[in-house]
Design a protein around this nucleic acid. Structure first.
Lengths: 214, 214, 214, 214
DNA sequence: AATGAATGAGCGTTCATTCAT
DNA sequence: GATGAATGAACGCTCATTCAT
């Protein structure tokens, strides 16, 4: 109705963003399947039909949500890693930073830990892409540490990445579904990192042959 | 796994079991929400209505599935733990045994790792009961190891139980959704256990104060 | 299992009767459509399937119920009429006796006033028979009274029979659905009869031409 | 009956009305329970789902039907009463007017006399509200007549209201389920009114003590 | 005859998606 | 672009009826 501002959609993509934000909130509270498109519309302050101007379907809304949120997470994680020099420090930060993020954004935590699994079809199709990038980031940190001799070389970086992802996920899930007290998550993160790093540390007398990766 | 026990109902009494088995298969293939009750019925070789003689609703079918499978798992895990004397051995077996079990039952792996999260409501109800028992079992093994001085005392057994569950879950999920090659899981289990135990081992000079549990 | 007693069915029709009695109770409480065959079976202390040994269908069970109950009612009404000599007395008794019956058998009252209308199809097919007999009985009493000069002749006996049936039904219905206090029904019956008889009484100076009947 | 008033909703705004009209037709033909929501939708020329934009459930559709129709009836009855001065005239008109209305609307007659009783639950809920108002209107006319000395004072106005309602209902039901010939209803109404008024008229020598009302 | 587990057709209702305005 | 009323396919569940025992 007034002058357009630029970007890809009406009034500078404003609506698209509002819809995504609303979707995070609604999906987090009720899960993907139990969430109604009309609820998301109401939460975003738009009409039901408007959602279909920005997303092809409810499925695509979830997909876009992950694309968007995991892309952001990857940016943040890469920045965080760049701030530290040693592999152990990076691993510790990967753990603590992620759980720290969640503490402030419980909704996002639920979307990632719970909603990521709402649709196996979605997961199978989609997860291989962005989720693969995410695992790759963590695996790369570990592989670097192995090469530099900081981390033990007899474990597969990719397997460890999965273990770490799973550990984070398990902690986040039980936290998000439970009391969700502040502080709890920080303590858990710290202990997780302690154990993980002690376990991953290069053993004095061990031979550091790298494990072949599946 | 061997002879059937109590016939809960009619002719033969194996209907309930056939339905549960069919549900695992169908849920694994399509996810809880995308699975149709009629598909499960067809897969089980019974009429749609028959399912409702054994389960109150589709939801309860999923819940019962977990109840049943986790109850069995708990029995097996307790037996397995009883076979070993030291805490480190028990922890290693908890990890290896569970992933070993799944290797033969990809469907079950997918149902447990993916479908369990399809409904946060379901999860919240369910998680409090059997899942609590499951976490308790693992936490108890760790706490015992701390008391005996075999495991480090500065971490919370319950947090570690969650980390371990999460790690197993993450490994199982990526495996079930991915290539699911034989052997992969066993290698992952072994490496997971190695790192975990090295991380949990009592440190020579560390003071073994137990961490307060939230 | 022991010696049969005679009649039309197993053990002297015992079961058939128990089923009918149970049906009255259940239909009265919940209405025909909301009543489950299995509830009737439970109330009768028989298996679901047993009902189908005595009645072809749930519909036929309702039909048989009316056949049976209205047949009994007709017998009682005829006996009652025979005890009185004048038409006004007979009319009064028809009113008072029926509402009196109901006071002791609220279930039957509900079945007749409410359930009779549960299925228009049923009503249309069935009601013309037994229900017609019932109306005929009342119309005959009035026609007799007109012939004897006790009742006014300028109204159709059949229309009056319907008015009386309706009046009884309206009173019974509001009573059965309401407080159903003892005594209320008796007072209502008495006042209904008073007004009705004053209205039906042959008017001194009126010409007693009988009204043609539709 | 003339111009439509408030558009409760979308394009045109007559959908709610079309649905109600279709419901009358379908319910009358097959009864509430045997009527399919999809039939009503087809008869109204809307999609199945559209019905649920205007009514919460099939049950509520029936309820709303009564609310709506009886509300209209009450308006008409009040207008009609206001046109007459004496209680006997008012009573006569209440009887004749109602049966006159039905003569043109056999479907509505069937819905009110038959379908109202399809669900005792429905009836119990409903009967307390609008139906109470309806009975109150008739009782008030009678009570007024008693106070003015036009009608006998020894009967309860409320009981008489029920008798009158029942009488009308009985006449309407047998008419709607039977031949439903034109003219029949008018004759029945006239005779009903004659008898009723003769029965209700204040008796010359009677003491006019008012009957206590339950 | 009696049982009651099994059946499966059938229905009320939901909700993602469309499209006239 | 934005709206939201309308759509109608799809599905969980019920329950009258059957029939092997």
């Amino acid at each position: 109705m007034s002058a357009a501002v630029g970007a890809r959609s009406p009034r500078g993509g404003d609506k698209r963003d509002r819809i995504l934000k609303a979707a995070v909130k609604v999906f987090a509270r009720k899960g993907f399947y139990a969430s109604r498109v009309s609820e998301i519309a109401r939460a975003a302050g738009v009409a039901d039909g408007t959602i279909y101007l920005y997303f092809k379907s409810k499925d695509e809304l979830l997909t876009s949500l992950f694309e968007d949120r995991i892309a952001r997470l990857l940016v943040l994680l890469r920045e965080e890693c760049a701030r530290y020099d040693t592999a152990p420090d990076k691993v510790r930060r990967l753990v603590e930073f992620q759980l720290g993020l969640l503490e402030g954004e419980r909704d996002l935590a639920e979307v990632i830990t719970v909603n990521l699994r709402q649709s196996s079809r979605l997961l199978k199709q989609y997860a291989t892409k962005r989720f693969g990038e995410y695992l790759d980031l963590m695996a790369a940190v570990i592989a670097d540490g192995q090469r530099s001799g900081e981390l033990r070389g007899d474990v597969s970086p990719r397997i460890m990445a999965r273990v770490i992802f799973g550990g984070l996920d398990g902690v986040a899930m039980t936290w998000a579904l439970g009391s969700a007290e502040a502080g709890t998550l920080r303590r858990a993160a710290s202990q997780f990192a302690d154990v993980l790093l002690d376990g991953l540390r290069a053993q004095p007398g061990a031979l550091q042959r790298p494990a072949a990766d599946p």
